[in-house]
């Protein structure tokens, strides 16, 4: 009985407490760097597209809002022919970033992306691709993956020995 009255009094006293609300947009909140906001596609340190169109982000996406098509350049480097994220469906869970083996897809601190029309929230590759490496400045997938591309032949990776001479007789 008394506890109920005391609770009522305690709640009443909150009238005079400092408010925790941040009055956005007049006052900008501090966004931590690992914030899961607008998704981008990054480039590797050499300026090449990092995305290799492996479809892992698409399959990890719980709402299925990523669609892409793989293509290959004449030297065998994979890239997405198109890459579409339907942000009107995206729940910003960050699974795509976790699934990405090449650090290409990254969630950024930008969350101010409201639109009046849903179709404006459909982002294509040219809307997603940025010019830098984003959160992972040094990483270059093709430096560790054993696939020959333009400017990197077989055996030229970190941790690779030159190609075997199949017709050699040495042990």
């Amino acid at each position: 009985m008394f506890s109920i009255l005391r609770a009522i009094w305690t709640v009443f006293l909150h009238l005079f407490r400092r408010k925790v609300t941040v009055l956005y947009p007049e006052e900008k909140p501090r966004i931590p760097p690992r914030w899961r906001g607008r998704i981008i596609l990054s480039r590797d340190p050499d300026g090449g597209e990092r995305c290799v169109a492996c479809y892992l982000c698409a399959v990890a996406c719980p709402v299925g809002c990523i669609a892409l098509q793989a293509a290959e350049d004449e030297y065998g480097r994979r890239y997405p022919e198109f890459f579409r994220i339907n942000f009107s469906r995206c729940i910003f869970c960050g699974f795509c970033e976790e699934a990405c083996p090449t650090c290409a897809i990254q969630l950024t601190t930008d969350f101010e992306m409201s639109e009046y029309y849903r179709h404006n929230l459909v982002y294509e590759k040219e809307d997603l691709l940025i010019s830098g490496p984003g959160k992972h400045p040094g990483y270059n997938f093709y430096k560790v993956a054993g696939l020959a591309i333009k400017g990197k032949d077989k055996g030229e990776n970190e941790n690779e020995s030159p190609p075997v001479d199949v017709k050699g007789l040495l042990p």
Partner: peptide, 16 residues
């Protein structure tokens, strides 16, 4: 009262 109630509830929950 629609406004009063929401405003007061806000205050009592440390909001606006």
């Amino acid at each position: 009262l629609i406004w009063v109630e929401r405003r007061l509830l806000g205050f009592w929950q440390d909001r606006y």
